[in-house]
């Protein structure tokens, strides 16, 4: 990193910094996390409230997008988790819009990507995990444990399968959160590395610039797909809580 003139710091973009100076990051300090999460909420509100303000039968473009997002997630909840999961639709919609806009806003140059932090995605994933598990026990009591007892398997195999099922159940929040944070962090770090090359290569700058352009398009796709994946996994976990039988 230190050799030559090349000084690329691909992970500096992830540093949490207080907004108004100082070095101490207390739990209440307004930081760049605060700023970009506020912008995420604002952007989601702009689409879903301001965009749909016309309440028109023939929608405007913004209203059309808001309705499309609504119908998309509504259908996802209905198809994946079942009709009785519709009451949790606002939670799922909140998760989807938050992750989607955090991912998309993070693609703005010099932006801070809140969803690239494992702390954020882990809290999101653990919230889903804990509430879904609690819901499963509240709705089904001890029968919820049948989720881990595969009735269709031969009896001797069932304890082994139960252990595997239990392990995979507890790995869920880990994979759920690391998938999102990892995908975004990796993409942003790679983009930064290529951008650093562009500054260092001089006349051949266009090669990394083209690479960054292509990567940016890919990152746009990743941002949307990761939001989609995070949401649909939440729906699948919700389905397990509502219908634990295999």
């Amino acid at each position: 990193m230190a050799e030559g003139g090349i000084d690329i710091r691909p992970v500096d973009q992830f540093i949490v910094k207080p907004l108004f100076g100082g070095d101490v990051v207390n739990w209440y300090t307004p930081t760049n996390v605060t700023l970009w999460m506020a912008l995420t909420v604002l952007a989601a509100t702009a689409l879903m409230v301001y965009g749909a303000r016309g309440r028109a039968v023939i929608p405007s473009r913004a209203q059309s997008m808001a309705e499309l997002s609504y119908s998309f997630i509504y259908k996802m909840v209905e198809d994946v988790a079942g009709r009785d999961a519709i009451r949790f639709f606002p939670y799922i919609m909140t998760i989807f819009l938050f992750v989607l806009f955090a991912n998309l806003l993070g693609l703005i140059p010099f932006a801070f990507t809140t969803t690239s932090h494992i702390a954020v995605t882990a809290v999101l994933a653990l919230t889903v995990f804990i509430s879904v598990t609690a819901l499963g026990f509240v709705l089904h009591g001890a029968k919820f444990l049948k989720l881990f007892w595969v009735d269709s398997a031969p009896l001797p195999l069932r304890p082994i399968l139960a252990v595997i099922e239990l392990l995979s159940y507890f790995v869920r929040p880990v994979s759920h959160s690391i998938r999102l944070a990892g995908a975004l962090m990796a993409g942003h770090a790679v983009a930064k590395v290529f951008a650093g090359f562009a500054a260092a290569l001089g006349a051949a700058f266009f090669i990394p610039v083209l690479a960054v352009t292509a990567l940016y398009a890919l990152e746009l796709l990743v941002a949307v797909i990761q939001a989609y994946v995070f949401t649909i996994l939440s729906c699948i976990y919700l389905k397990d809580a509502l219908h634990p039988a295999h």
């Binding site: 500096d12 949490v16 990051v25 739990w27 930081t31 809140t114 932090h117 494992i118 702390a119 944070a181």
Partner: peptide
């Protein structure tokens, strides 16, 4: 990685 800087976790979680 700044992601593993646990001193910022309370801040991030609070604002999240």
């Amino acid at each position: 990685m700044p992601q593993l800087d646990f001193s910022t976790y309370p801040n991030q979680i609070f604002w999240l």
